[in-house]
């Protein structure tokens, strides 16, 4: 699938939802818990999380894949690790700025 900034996707298996912050526009295989992610409004399928892609996503955290220069923001937490082309996405660590508003 092509990932473009602002795109919203959900897991086919769990409650996980993400927004694309950065995407190169190239065709990638984005999965959650081992199953391809689907559009936000599509319905979930029956199935179980692949043990090799166990894990979870946390609300408000950003997940990155350096190879494809992709960044996803978790907008709803849920089970199953996020992966692109078989690589599990890493958690992006950034010190939040102090609130100015």
């Amino acid at each position: 699938m092509e990932l473009k900034p602002g795109g919203q996707l959900r897991s086919a298996l769990s409650t996980t939802e993400v927004v694309v912050v950065k995407g190169s526009g190239a065709d990638v295989d984005l999965r959650c818990g081992g199953l391809p992610m689907i559009g936000k409004d599509e319905s979930a399928s029956e199935g179980t999380i692949d043990e090799a892609f166990a894990g979870e996503s946390l609300l408000g955290k950003r997940y990155v894949d350096d190879d494809t220069d992709t960044e996803l923001l978790c907008t709803k937490p849920g089970d199953g690790a996020l992966s692109i082309d078989g690589r599990v996405l890493g958690l992006k660590g950034a010190k939040p700025l102090p609130s100015s508003d």
Binding site: P5, G6, E17, V19, K40, G60, T75, K76
Partner: peptide, 15 residues
């Protein structure tokens, strides 16, 4: 990205 996304995100993340 458009501003409506913030509303979608807020209502699904901590509605």
């Amino acid at each position: 990205m458009h501003l409506g996304l913030v509303l979608d995100m807020a209502s699904s993340g901590y509605g």
